[in-house]
Design a protein around this nucleic acid. Structure first.
Length: 728
DNA sequence: CAGTGAGCGAGCTTCCGCTTGACTT
């Protein structure tokens, strides 16, 4: 038996940091997250025996547990240092259950930051495991299992096998579907913003019609709704005598945004850098684990799965020291800024920030990959700016009066840059009004109107859906990415131009689920579940009572759903005019995992079925049999296959972009590396060896046919004919 | 950087939340 103590923490990267603080008397090992769970193959909940969970050690956790058992035998005191939240408390309890033996004592260690002070303080306060909090976690786990594992099988029977439903994924799908409904129902409204140019003492400015006699200004400018109205008022505007009636300028402070949490990082990386949430998280993981920089190894950012904007006091101080040293006292607000986390934040980790604020993005240039640097720079700027001084904006509002009309012009000027010097993208500043204007007569130079239509809301990007889920408190920082992957994998949603669209299957599934289980898949269900779990955590409600609270309505809804199964199945199928080629009976159209399919109405006697999806024609013909080549999706992604059933010819999917090698004449095609990563190379391989990871955009200039190879933004000038490019 | 190439209707699927490597389908 050794004299020291064992400390178990969740992440190996944190274990490493801890070793630096605690010295030789402490052995530190990682549990890698949860160590026990409900079994994957069955419900694993004794519904009639107080909802007792039946835990197992998942196969991929066996070796971790074996290693923990072995090392734990050498110690009589084991500190359990999983995250200080509901899931972490449960991990500690599971560990104690797995590692308990005669003479060993477990002590709970809680700290919200991995700093020396916080860790040493936690050691002094070490206590026991909070079983109420553990019960809250168990209730959460079991409720999710009941919802998922009892409703999914219903979908297998009603719609198709392999489908799934869940407290989080179904609501995420619902959000995508509801946005789609809004777009479908949207009625565009015509409006005609009116703009005019005015002149005073040789200075010119442009202004918009803002108010008309007899109409209320509702804070927004007034725009006529039709060409007739425009034609009616333009002559009166031209005939009016104009003057500047007021010119006001006010200074207002502009505050920086709080440092990043998981959802806001994904959002910013998506809009500013075009990164998907999954790419963002994988790059952030690398930055967190640390990279070799000039021989030394260190973590560059704090933990990336967090919903708290809290900052460790040490980090706050070094941010202020840095700002003072690098920018002078003007960049320092009088007192450190505090930001409030959302009320549902579990606050186990800090905000996402650089571990060392003096490690500027410039200092890392060339030492880490370009993509890592872009993400690091985003995080560094956001954090550093969050502790810098306010910016100051001077905003001018100018009002012009003429007859019954009022025009308005606004302008902005940055009086003091403040934090915008560090993170300029946080705000966009309008251009200023021309100088030298004053109250008094002005001349109308010209006036014009432009037809516009109100636009429907846009579809969610992946990061946009995460932001919406976060707003509703659905899902956690560690699961945002996997939830989106699940609804993609099930075929409920598809991505096109980086936006999420529901598929026919998704639409059908969510409509059925919301109809049959309205309370469970309501956007407010998670919030009320969290309230109940808080009550379990405080000891006011028991575990069994909490789970029963969900079980009762779930049981009732399921019972009604099963009674209606036959009529639901009938609803899911649409009769067609086609006859079965095998038995002549009518064919039915059904939703399926890979799009709709036609099946014989005489099933199961006749098993005929075929896909109802239209194959996407490639416009090419098969070199072997002359039939059309169509796009297909196989186990390894897209490819081109022969549409004739008897012909087996295949080739990689074309991109429509010619090979950029001089005089090659080949075409770029989609291929996969051994590791499964998609890349693009010449169709004439191995004659031509051109290859690139970058996705070529199959666009060409509408005027001269010049093909674009890079991911060129829309609307740029064509490099060949110098005209603005339009998509083909 | 470089194969391959489907299937819903069969005899298993499925949940959410913690955390990293395994490891060739």
């Amino acid at each position: 038996m050794s004299g020291g103590s064992l400390v178990i923490i969740e992440s190996p990267a944190k274990a490493k940091t801890l070793r630096g603080y605690l010295g030789k008397d402490y052995e530190i090992v990682a549990s890698m997250g949860h160590v026990r769970d409900l079994p994957k193959q069955r419900l694993g909940v004794s519904v009639d025996a107080g909802f007792k969970p039946q835990y197992t050690v998942p196969s991929d956790k066996r070796s971790t547990i074996e290693a923990l058992r072995k090392v734990s035998r050498r110690f009589d005191t084991i500190f359990l240092a999983a995250d200080p939240d509901r899931e972490g408390e449960a991990i500690c309890w599971h560990l104690s259950e797995l590692l308990k033996r005669e003479g060993v004592t477990f002590r709970r260690l809680k700290f919200n930051e991995i700093t020396k002070d916080a860790v040493l303080g936690a050691l002094k306060r070490a206590g026991g495991i909070d079983m109420n909090l553990v019960d809250a976690q168990q209730a959460r786990r079991v409720m999710d299992r009941l919802v998922g594992y009892r409703i999914s099988p219903y979908l297998w029977r009603a719609i198709g096998s392999g489908l799934s439903a869940g407290r989080v994924q179904t609501v995420a799908l619902r959000l995508v579907q509801e946005r789609e409904n809004q777009i479908a129902e949207f009625v565009p409204v015509e409006y005609w913003p009116i703009k005019a140019r005015f002149e005073q003492n040789g200075g010119e400015l442009s202004a918009s019609l803002y108010r008309m006699a007899g109409r209320r200004a509702d804070g927004d400018r007034h725009s006529p709704g039709s060409r007739e109205e425009v034609d009616r008022i333009l002559p009166s505007i031209r005939a009016a005598a104009w003057r500047i009636v007021s010119l006001e300028t006010k200074k207002a402070p502009l505050k920086p945004l709080p440092p990043f949490i998981t959802s806001s990082l994904q959002q910013s990386a998506s809009s500013a850098l075009g990164m998907s949430p999954s790419r963002t998280m994988s790059l952030a993981q690398d930055l967190y684990e640390g990279m070799d920089i000039g021989g030394e190894h260190s973590g560059l950012i704090t933990y990336m799965r967090t919903d708290s904007v809290r900052i460790a006091p040490e980090a706050l101080k070094s941010a202020r020291d840095f700002l003072l040293a690098a920018h002078g006292p003007g960049m320092l607000p009088p007192s450190p800024r505090r930001f409030r986390s959302s009320s549902r934040s579990q606050d186990a980790h800090e905000a996402i920030r650089p571990t060392d604020v003096t490690r500027t993005p410039e200092s890392l240039k060339g030492r880490i990959s370009d993509q890592h640097l872009r993400l690091y720079s985003l995080i560094w700027r956001r954090f550093t700016a969050s502790q810098a001084a306010d910016a100051e904006v001077e905003r001018s509002v100018l009002i012009l009066g003429g007859g019954e009309f009022e025009f308005r012009a606004t302008g902005e000027r940055l009086a003091s840059k403040g934090f915008l010097e560090i993170d300029p993208h946080q705000a966009s500043i309008e251009s200023p009004l021309p100088s030298g204007l004053s109250e008094g007569p002005a001349r109308l130079v010209d006036v014009s109107a432009e037809q516009c239509f109100t636009r429907p809301p846009s579809r969610f990007t992946e990061a946009g859906l995460v932001a919406e889920m976060k707003k509703l408190g659905i899902g956690r920082p560690s699961t945002y990415v996997s939830i989106i992957e699940t609804i993609k994998k099930r075929g409920y949603v598809a991505i096109s131009e980086k936006k999420l669209h529901p598929t026919e299957l998704g639409t059908t599934t969510v409509r059925l689920l919301v109809e049959l289980f309205p309370s469970i898949f309501d956007t407010s269900f998670t919030a009320s579940m969290e309230e109940l779990l808080d009550s379990v955590a405080s000891g006011a409600t028991g575990y069994e009572e909490a789970v029963a609270n969900l079980q009762r309505p779930l049981d009732e809804s399921l019972k009604a759903a099963v009674e209606n199964l036959d009529s639901v199945r009938r609803e899911m199928t649409r009769p067609t005019d086609e006859k079965c080629p095998q038995c002549g009976a009518q064919l039915l159209l059904k939703p399926g995992r890979f799009g709709s399919y036609l099946s014989c109405s005489d099933y199961p006697k006749c098993r005929f079925r075929k896909s109802a999806e239209k194959a996407v024609d490639s416009g090419r013909t098969c070199p072997e049999c002359g039939a059309a080549l169509v796009f297909k999706t196989g186990r390894y992604g897209r490819y081109l296959g022969c549409s004739s059933a008897s012909c087996k010819h295949t080739e990689p999917a074309p991109t429509g972009v010619p090979c950029p090698e001089e005089g090659c004449g080949g075409e770029l095609v989609e291929r996969r590396s051994k590791k499964g990563r998609v890349f693009y190379s010449c169709s004439r391989y191995p004659l031509c060896r051109h290859a690139s990871w970058r996705r070529p955009i199959p666009r060409r200039c509408a005027r001269c046919g010049f093909p674009y190879l890079e991911e060129t933004p829309r609307g740029v000038k064509c490099p060949s004919c110098r005209k603005p490019e339009s998509p083909s």
